[in-house]
Simulated assay, not measured.
Amino acid sequence: MGLEAVVNEIREKGRKEVEAIRAETRAEVEEILKEAQARAAEIKLSAKEEADRAATHIINQEVSAANLVVKRQVLNAQKTLLDQVYSASLAAIGDLPAEFQEKALTDLLKRAAKVIKKGVVHANERDIPLVEDTISRLKTLSGYTVGDPVDIPGGIIVESSDGELQLDYSYGTFLDEIWESSLKDASDILFA
């Protein structure tokens, strides 16, 4: 065997080893690429799931915030409406006919006389003549005098002569008491 044959044999052997190494390297590269692709798919899936969770969380927060804003606006509108009903009620009480006002003031004065025997009666400007007339007509009210007009929608405020006791029988006070005790019922009726 000549030198050329030995060289060819070594070359052939080297070429086979190179091909084997290349094939082995290609297999390793393909395995590494497969693993990288699988890992990338896992990362992508995990990121998508995390993004979906985050988006759902943000949407839920926004929906809750929007619901709170709407509820606040509804409550504000209801409060405005209730305030309007209160004001209208107070105005309607003050605008009742003179016969009603006379009877109501007489009853309130009699009621006050049971608690305060002598005192000063205050009423609004419109009702002062009715109060004066009622005090002059009824002997049980002889201990009363008429005081300065006060800014109330109707009713009376009676102050004892010594100034230690005051009865507030104004329509506004009565309406406030009724309003406080019946606000939930009124709200249920109006906004049910």
Rank of each mutant, 00 (worst) to 15 (best):
M1T: 06
G2I: 03
G2N: 09
E4L: 14
E4Q: 09
V6L: 13
I10N: 13
E12C: 10
K13L: 09
E17V: 04
E19Y: 14
A20E: 15
A20T: 11
I21Y: 08
R22F: 09
A23P: 02
T25F: 14
R26W: 15
A27Q: 05
E28H: 09
V29T: 09
V29H: 08
V29Q: 07
Q37H: 13
Q37S: 12
K44R: 08
K48Y: 11
E50M: 05
D52F: 13
R53A: 10
R53E: 10
R53F: 10
A55V: 03
A55Q: 12
H57N: 10
I59R: 10
I59C: 03
N60K: 15
Q61S: 13
E62A: 11
E62D: 09
V63D: 05
A65W: 05
A65Y: 06
A65H: 13
A66I: 06
L68C: 11
V69M: 11
K71C: 05
R72P: 01
Q73P: 03
V74A: 14
N76F: 07
A77K: 06
Q78D: 09
T80A: 14
L81G: 05
D83L: 08
D83A: 06
Q84W: 12
Y86P: 00
S87N: 12
A88Y: 12
S89I: 08
S89C: 12
G94T: 05
G94R: 02
L96G: 10
L96V: 13
F100S: 04
E102M: 12
E102Y: 03
K103I: 04
K103P: 01
A104E: 03
L105V: 04
T106H: 10
D107M: 06
D107A: 14
A113M: 06
K114P: 03
I116F: 02
K117Y: 14
K117G: 05
K118Y: 15
G119P: 00
V121C: 04
H122Y: 07
H122S: 03
H122A: 01
N124R: 03
D127V: 02
I128C: 07
P129L: 06
V131G: 01
L138Y: 02
L138K: 02
S142V: 12
T145E: 08
G147K: 01
G147E: 00
D148Q: 15
P149H: 04
P149V: 04
V150C: 01
V150K: 01
D151M: 09
P153N: 15
P153A: 15
G155H: 02
I157E: 00
E159V: 13
S161K: 01
S161M: 02
D162L: 08
G163Y: 03
Q166Y: 09
Q166L: 14
Q166K: 11
Q166W: 09
Q166V: 14
L167I: 03
L167N: 01
Y171H: 05
T173F: 14
T173N: 07
F174T: 00
L175R: 06
D176C: 04
W179C: 00
S181R: 11
D188Y: 14
I189F: 13
I189K: 08
A192I: 07
